[in-house]
Write a protein that binds this DNA or RNA. Structure first.
Length: 501
RNA sequence: GGGCCGUUAGCUCAACAGGUAGAGCUCCGGACUUUUAAUCCGGCGGAGCGGGUUCGAGUCCUGCACGGCCUACCA
């Protein structure tokens, strides 16, 4: 790529193949044929022809049925005066059988001027060949979209990962798995939405541009509004707006949409990713665990065909009721130290962290230290779905304090294959406590914690207006799709992942 | 950000103690009327960028760019 303008497409390869195709393009035009016509009548999708005839017709039998089809020419096998052409659209492929007897010399000449990759329309009778391949016995051929760039290797396809993401149109053309993942993603989102709708949740859309970034501990992207002359932030979560809606009397709301976090990229992190968030009045985190399990199990059934999966070559069982384990208990078990507690001596906790190679910082309280131990020792080991519950207050500024333990909140994360898929809690609804928690965050921010929250006065006003008790949930949709599609890179489930421009 | 690995033809991949780069697919020319990555014959086409060592560098050293994986932060 020699262009330095961001956003410009890759330069056409200065290749002889391109030149040949351009020459063909010129010849088409010289003959008065528009290589990019407005379109021809296509009455039959390739998939429909296959569905109608796949289990019918004996070899060499003709159907008597004429069709008009179209697709990208991905293979051509010539046998002198008999030529087989394979058209593909999406996952459907159909062969054309081309002979001078039916296509005429003119049609054969058209065939001669086509390249692999060209979009082609054809009419003809549905037949089955001597070797048993369902085909259209072509009577006419029309070029409907000239391809000027060569197709990737017809057997190996496109392997280069970066090119697959950058040129998704090529990837989707030649890699069936790219198309499969796309379908799993669509089915996953459809299932989540269906389950929430059936439970009476209202789908809403809240702003992407936030004057105060909030709802999660993360660094935001900053942008600028010219007319208002103010900086705005791309949302890092939807939480605070959705809770405003519950305060407004909408008892069950959800939103599926993009959030943005200004953090590093990895196989598990894309700067923009899709999150489902839902809020339900009068629910607590136990109810939300039930909901989470139902959502993910339904998505697994409808997008992955069941709850018994293989991920990264290991079986995962999403079925049944998932265990609910207290975070503190998990840390105690992992360290073999029953005396780990949120009111334990800070120096002892630091020493324990050091023993396990956990890096610590000044100013971290016991809650943060225990969380770090959990993340280092436990989280990655939880393979089958596990609800990890009761997170320390210190690291949960929006969650309600536990009804029977002042050190923790009624919060859980759902962990599958060692990764966090979702995060939820009995929501904090007390405005005074929320203000105190925000101020605590603001102090951390002032002390240099870039992920810490700011005081959101507008949100506090909504809380002061009064909100019902509620349970909230956030699910990382991309990660759920990764699990259900069995892929280990988030870039495989995002069509156009963020790449260096 | 750190570590490791990588970048050879449009695509997928080779080779060699440092000796002037090879195959398949695509494309072009030719043969072939039932193929399934059709087959057969012929042809075009190439070392990420910059330094250095050397008679000679794709190969060794070095800087840069880009990418992959792991790690760190997070969903």
């Amino acid at each position: 790529m020699s262009s330095d303008e961001p956003g410009t497409p890759p330069d056409p390869p200065r290749d002889e193949v391109i030149a040949e195709r351009r020459a063909k393009l010129d010849r088409w035009r010289a003959r008065g044929v528009d290589p990019y016509p407005v379109g021809v009548e296509v009455t039959d999708a390739l998939a429909d022809v296959r569905a109608a005839w796949d289990d019918k017709l004996e070899p060499e039998e003709a159907s008597g049925q004429d069709v008009a089809v179209a697709g990208r020419m991905v293979l051509r096998r010539g046998h002198g005066k008999l030529v087989f052409v394979v058209l593909r659209e999406g996952d459907a492929e159909l062969q054309l059988m081309c002979q001078p007897q039916t296509l005429g010399q003119g049609g054969m000449a058209i065939l001669d001027e086509l390249d692999l990759g060209d979009w082609v329309a054809a009419t003809g009778e549905v037949v089955r060949t001597r070797r048993g391949e369902l085909s259209v016995h072509a009577r006419s051929l029309t070029l409907i979209g000239k391809s000027l760039r060569p197709m990737p290797d017809k057997w190996h396809g496109l392997r280069d990962v970066e090119t697959r993401y950058r040129q998704r149109w090529v990837d989707l053309t030649v890699n069936a798995d790219a198309r499969r993942v796309l379908r799993v993603r669509a089915a996953t989102i459809r299932a989540l939405r269906a389950e929430l709708e059936e439970r009476g949740y209202l789908e809403v859309e809240t702003p992407l541009l936030h004057p105060v970034p909030g709802g999660a501990l993360a660094r935001p992207f900053v942008t600028h509004h010219n007319a208002l002359g103010v900086d705005l932030y791309l949302r890092i979560a939807k939480e605070l707006y959705l809770k405003r809606l519950v305060a407004g009397g909408l008892p069950r709301v959800y939103e599926i949409g993009r959030v943005f976090r200004n953090e590093g990229l990895s196989t598990r992190h894309n700067p923009e990713f899709t999150m489902l968030e839902s809020y339900e009045a009068h629910a607590d985190y136990h109810d939300v665990m039930d909901l989470t399990q139902a959502l993910i199990q339904r998505a697994a059934r409808e997008a992955a065909g069941g709850t018994d999966l293989i991920y990264d070559e290991r079986p995962v069982d999403l079925g049944g009721d998932w265990p609910r384990r207290r975070l503190l208990d998990l840390v105690r078990a992992a360290t073999g130290r029953a005396d780990v507690a949120y009111d334990a001596d800070l120096d002892e906790l630091r020493a324990l962290c050091a023993t396990h190679g956990v890096r610590t910082e000044e100013g971290w309280g016991p809650g943060k230290l225990v969380l770090e131990l959990y993340e280092k020792l436990v989280e990655g080991e939880l393979w089958d779905p596990t609800f990890v519950i009761d997170y320390p207050v210190e690291v949960s500024p929006l969650a309600r304090r536990h009804r029977s333990d002042p050190h923790t909140t009624e919060r859980f994360e759902i962990i599958v294959t060692g990764r966090e898929l979702g995060n939820a809690f009995s929501e904090l609804t007390d405005p005074d406590e929320q203000r105190a928690r925000f101020e605590e965050q603001a102090r951390a921010k002032a002390a240099g914690d870039a992920d810490a929250m700011s005081v959101d006065a507008d949100y506090l006003a909504a809380m002061e207006f009064g909100m019902p008790p509620m349970g909230g949930l956030g699910i990382g949709v991309d990660r759920l799709v990764m699990l259900l599609a069995g892929v280990t890179s988030i870039r495989d489930v995002i069509l156009f992942p963020t790449l260096r421009p």
